[in-house]
Amino acid sequence: MSVFAFLGTLLSHLADVIDPLFGTSATAAAIVLFTLGVRLALHPLARSAARGEGARAALAPELEKLRRKHKNHPERLHKAASEMYAKAGSSPMAGCLPSMVQLPVFYVMYHLFATGSGGDGLLDHTLLGAPLGSRWADALGHGGAFGPQGLVYLGLFALIAAVATWTYTRSRKAAATMPVPGADQVPGMASLTKILPLLTFGTLVTAAIVPLAAGLYLAATTAWTAAERAYLTPLRTAKPTAKARV
């Protein structure tokens, strides 16, 4: 049995369990609950990544001093930076590996909901009358933007836009209070720093072109990510365990 078939079977069983509560929208509710359950299982990795980000952020001022001190001696800079990270019990890649481990899981989940490859007629079900396998363009052809199906998509877009706006606002505030050391010395970095937060709205565009099931997944996982990042903020601002020697 493929991983998609396995996940599809789990979703079907979950939908059967909650059917008395959600009726014809049980599969849609199962997608949201299943997504949140997977994100909860991956939370320890998110905590580990947050600690790694905090360690790098805390050591950034010391690393900037090293860059200025050894700007004409790359080998000395590399050696001094390695010693600094070792002394603090961290590494330049701290936090990256846990994030990378999660990517295959996110891909499998998205592929499952975007293609219905789990079988069991996953995309044949509906949410308030809107087929999970249909797209926004299909809804526009059945009553327009404010028709029964169109309103389902408008509600989904409103939720994703609210999460994206909140994430964008927090990202801009974080960038203002904790600027990246040396960013002004890298050509184009300042502009890139301003543009990156806008990418959070890319989810809104994606939700408009993928099946409704995948849109529900995107809404659930981005909402979880926003809440999780806010919850883990203290770990990203933790002080280093030891001061580096410059």
Rank of each mutant, 00 (worst) to 15 (best):
D120C: 10
T126F: 09
P211S: 01
R172P: 14
P240D: 01
A46Y: 01
A161M: 11
K65H: 12
V3F: 14
K69Q: 12
L66A: 02
V152L: 03
R68W: 06
Q102H: 05
G8E: 05
S117Q: 05
A242E: 13
A137F: 08
G95F: 03
I31T: 01
I209A: 13
A50G: 04
A175T: 11
T115P: 03
L159P: 08
G37I: 00
A58T: 03
G147T: 02
H142C: 11
P92I: 02
L40R: 10
L232R: 00
L235A: 13
L232A: 08
P187C: 06
G118P: 05
E64H: 14
H43E: 11
S82D: 14
G143I: 13
T233F: 08
G121F: 09
S191I: 15
V17D: 10
P234D: 11
L33E: 06
L212V: 09
V105A: 01
P187Q: 07
T9K: 04
M189S: 14
L128M: 12
I31W: 03
Y231W: 15
L103P: 09
S117H: 09
G143H: 08
L154N: 12
L127Y: 05
A145D: 02
L140S: 00
T222N: 14
V180H: 09
F106T: 10
E64L: 08
S99F: 02
L232I: 02
L140W: 09
G119P: 03
A80F: 08
S117K: 09
D124L: 13
D184W: 06
I18Q: 01
G129W: 03
G141T: 09
G215F: 08
E64T: 07
V246M: 03
V210C: 10
T222E: 12
Y107M: 15
L66V: 02
V205A: 15
V108I: 15
T222I: 10
L112E: 07
G37N: 05
A80M: 03
Q102K: 01
K71I: 14
A207Y: 05
H111S: 15
G144A: 07
K173C: 03
D120G: 11
F146D: 02
L33K: 12
V205M: 14
L59W: 07
A230L: 00
T225L: 06
A227W: 11
A5I: 13
G141Q: 09
G121E: 07
L123Q: 04
L216T: 02
V101T: 10
I160Q: 06
R47E: 13
L122F: 04
M178Y: 11
V32F: 04
